[in-house]
């Protein structure tokens, strides 16, 4: 399986009160459990990223729950209101409980 790699785009600097956009992407096949392996004819078991969480300075700010209808390499963009400098932590949870993490700093002036 290809390596699962998260990528996040967070503005490095922001002015207090600004609403910034956070973009997050993870490379993942998002097997729906419906497709078949063309060579063997067997069904590929379901394996998707079912949850994405964004936290800022330890506090959860945004959660996305994904179903198999979300495309491969799930992409998510969401707004965030800058008020203080801090650290973002992003967590992706795969079926079966495996977690992938990324973090980014944002300084607010």
């Amino acid at each position: 399986m290809a390596k699962i790699k998260p990528r996040v785009k967070v503005p490095k600097k922001a002015a207090a009160g600004d609403i910034v956009e956070i973009k997050a992407l993870i490379s993942h096949p998002m097997h729906t459990g419906r497709a078949k392996n063309k060579k063997t004819g067997k069904k590929i078991p379901r394996k998707i990223i079912n949850k994405f969480t964004a936290s800022f300075n330890g506090q959860e700010v945004f959660v996305a729950n994904f179903e198999p209808a979300v495309s491969a390499n799930p992409y998510i963009a969401f707004p965030f209101k800058a008020s203080e400098s801090g650290n973002f932590t992003f967590t992706w949870v795969e079926d079966g409980g495996a977690e992938f993490k990324a973090s980014k700093k944002m300084s607010v002036s």
């Binding site: 609403i19 729906t32 419906r34 800022f56 506090q59 959860e60 700010v61 945004f62 959660v63 996305a64 729950n65 994904f66 179903e67 198999p68 209808a69 979300v70 495309s71 799930p74 992409y75 998510i76 963009a77 969401f78 707004p79 965030f80 209101k81 008020s83």
Partner: peptide, 28 residues
């Protein structure tokens, strides 16, 4: 989505810290 094998696509939980309510993703 009403024409997919299962109706759910995704759900999102928002908090006031976000300052606005919007999101964007890609679906099948």
């Amino acid at each position: 989505a009403d024409g997919n094998p299962t109706p759910d696509v995704a759900s999102f939980n928002f908090t006031p810290a976000m300052g606005a309510c919007s999101a964007s993703t890609r679906m099948r």
